[in-house]
């Protein structure tokens, strides 16, 4: 998927009518929109020009390119990712602890799960902002815990030691009080890692999802499926 990145994404940005971001009410707030505008190098003149263009616009045909009327066929993520290099490095390690590579499919970080989590927690919505708080607290907790137990941060300790920490936080309902914050964080990262991983083509292939293809005819489930269900 295309992303708003500077400066090479200029052409995509023109397709994405940023002026609409400022003009619309709700959703992306003005501060966030300004941030996008500034990031695009359009500045405040760009805003004025955009609004003028909107008023003179001809009949509204096709996507406006706003958050509530986005280009669906060529989607972009209109907000910047905000995690630091070190946060991403820790996440990548954690993502691969959660879904490691095996014979059937690559590891989570190989499919960009940590980058997806960055996209998620950088989104300008309430739910994602809450997750962002959990993630930031959790990453800090993780390094703190690792330092306390082993004298170095999570990415720098052995796999065995990482597992020692993860075992204490992997099951939120059973987590003891000192680990609850870490457990909440771990549950979030596991959910987001699974979401990122299994919704890629590689993840779907691993699961044996064989749909999303046009069929000339719809058939009843194969015999093997009915047998599996005890219906034959």
């Amino acid at each position: 998927m295309a992303r708003v990145r500077l400066p090479r994404a200029r052409t995509q940005i023109e397709k994405y009518r940023v002026s609409e971001l400022i003009a619309r009410e709700g959703g992306l707030n003005r501060r966030m929109a300004m941030k996008v505008m500034v990031a695009l190098g359009l500045g405040s003149t760009g805003v004025a020009r955009g609004q003028q263009a909107r008023l003179e616009a001809k009949p509204n045909v096709g996507p406006a390119g706003t958050l509530s009327d986005p280009e669906l066929k060529q989607a972009i993520v209109p907000w910047e990712r905000t995690l630091s290099e070190s946060q991403l490095a820790t996440l990548a390690v954690l993502c691969d602890l959660i879904l490691p590579a095996d014979q059937r499919s690559p590891s989570a970080s190989q499919l960009g799960a940590h980058e997806f989590i960055d996209e998620w927690v950088s989104a300008p919505y309430e739910r994602q902002l809450q997750d962002r708080a959990v993630l930031f607290e959790g990453l800090e907790w993780l390094d703190g815990e690792s330092n306390r137990r082993f004298g170095s941060s999570f990415v720098d300790v052995t796999a065995d030691r990482r597992h020692q920490v993860c075992r204490d936080i992997c099951n939120l309902p059973d987590a003891t009080e000192p680990h609850r914050l870490g457990a909440r964080f771990f549950a979030l990262v596991r959910d987001l890692t699974a979401t990122a991983f299994w919704t890629t083509q590689e993840g779907m292939d691993d699961l044996g999802y064989v749909g999303n293809v046009p069929l000339p005819k719809w058939e009843a489930p194969p015999k093997a499926v009915l047998e599996h269900l005890g219906l034959e």
Partner: peptide, 29 residues
């Protein structure tokens, strides 16, 4: 509302990974 053409605008086979937030619901969508 605006003019809308399902023939030209429908993302027929696009995957979750091609959408922001893997296509998750947001207040905007």
């Amino acid at each position: 509302g605006r003019d809308y053409d399902p023939v030209g605008e429908t993302p027929m086979f696009n995957l979750p990974k091609d959408a922001p937030l893997r296509g998750a619901d947001t207040p905007d969508k």
